[in-house]
């Protein structure tokens, strides 16, 4: 009885209201637009305008020309290296984990546990993450000490340094691979059991199934998500700053120092560096959504 009444209510008056008073729906999304304009469009325009002005607010392209100096190029290069390494590393690790738990026939609770962990860990970054790593893998960290006393292995003597490229990459991996797990899970859910069975039935080996069916279907999502991870690492600032105290020359750290007026002495140049980052990010997100659309077409 009740569901019939609900259906009537849902079908009738609401539909009428929606067509007649279409403007009310806009009110609901208004905060979003206000937010987007205030914190995305305006700052971005501010950046672009600033990057095209000299110190006397005259139009110039000099800031972009000045970016080709070793310190800035080096910062970009380092940022890109850290991002690529952690995107590919975290991406592969996350993919393998997700694949094993979703398609590997493991019990359901393993999947639930991994998903919950990933939801938490993918958001665990910044100062707490840096602190966690210092407390475990730092010079006097818990695991460093454990390895030393239990196995006589002093990792710092073997060249490990938490405050280096490797250490920073490890810390980034901590939020990179869970993000991969979260984003790739739906794509893996879309892989039908029948595809594997059909391919086995037609005589294909496991490798051939992978090579010709599963991988091509997953590749757009896989690459797309790695690009997203790349952007995620590229924009990270707090983790690196907290871990290395701002001495590690990433592009974001350079921008941070510029904002505080520690280097460069030229706000316009700082804006130009930031615009460069925005462009790289925008490119990655575009490629990501293009690849995502491609794979969705197949999986629907």
């Amino acid at each position: 009885m009740t569901h019939i009444n609900q259906a009537e209510i849902l079908n009738h008056p609401l539909r009428v209201t929606r067509t007649r008073n279409i403007s009310w729906a806009w009110l609901g999304v208004l905060p979003f637009f206000v937010f987007a304009i205030a914190f995305l469009i305006l700052p971005a325009s501010y950046l672009v305008v600033g990057s095209l002005q000299d110190t006397k607010e005259n139009f110039t392209l000099a800031n972009f020309a000045d970016m080709f100096q070793p310190e800035i190029l080096g910062a970009y290069w380092l940022s890109i290296q850290v991002s690529v390494v952690t995107a590919v590393g975290g991406g592969l690790l996350g993919f393998m984990l997700a694949y094993a738990t979703i398609l590997g026939g493991l019990p359901r609770w393993v999947r639930n546990a991994l998903m919950t962990f990933s939801g938490v860990a993918s958001n665990f970054s910044g100062v707490p993450l840096a602190f966690a790593f210092i407390a475990t893998l730092g010079r006097t960290g818990f695991i460093t000490a454990l390895l030393k006393t239990a196995f006589g292995l002093n990792i710092y003597e073997y060249g490990f340094n938490l405050y280096s490229f490797l250490g920073l990459s490890l810390a980034y991996m901590y939020f990179q691979f869970p993000l991969m797990v979260l984003i790739i899970a739906p794509a893996l859910d879309g892989i039908k059991r029948e595809w594997r069975e059909a391919s086995e039935n037609l005589g294909a080996t496991s490798w051939q199934y992978w090579r010709y069916v599963a991988l091509p279907i997953l590749l757009p999502s896989l690459l797309g998500t790695m690009i997203l991870l790349f952007g995620n690492a590229l924009g990270a600032y707090a983790t690196a700053f907290a871990l290395t105290g701002g001495t590690f020359g990433l592009a974001t750290i350079l921008i941070g120092r510029q904002i505080r007026g520690e280097v460069l002495q030229n706000p316009g140049l700082g804006y130009a560096v930031a615009v460069g980052m925005v462009i790289i990010m925008a490119l990655s997100v575009s490629i990501y959504s293009w690849l995502q659309r491609r794979s969705e077409r197949w999986l629907r």
Binding site: A198, L202, G203, Q208, Y212, V213, I217
Partner: peptide, 27 residues
Amino acid sequence: NTGMVFQAYALFPNMTVADNIGFGLKV
């Protein structure tokens, strides 16, 4: 060497009709 037709559409979504049909011979 059995040929199976499934209830749900189990065609490989990333391949054309011709590639689907030729899959068994290709592998």
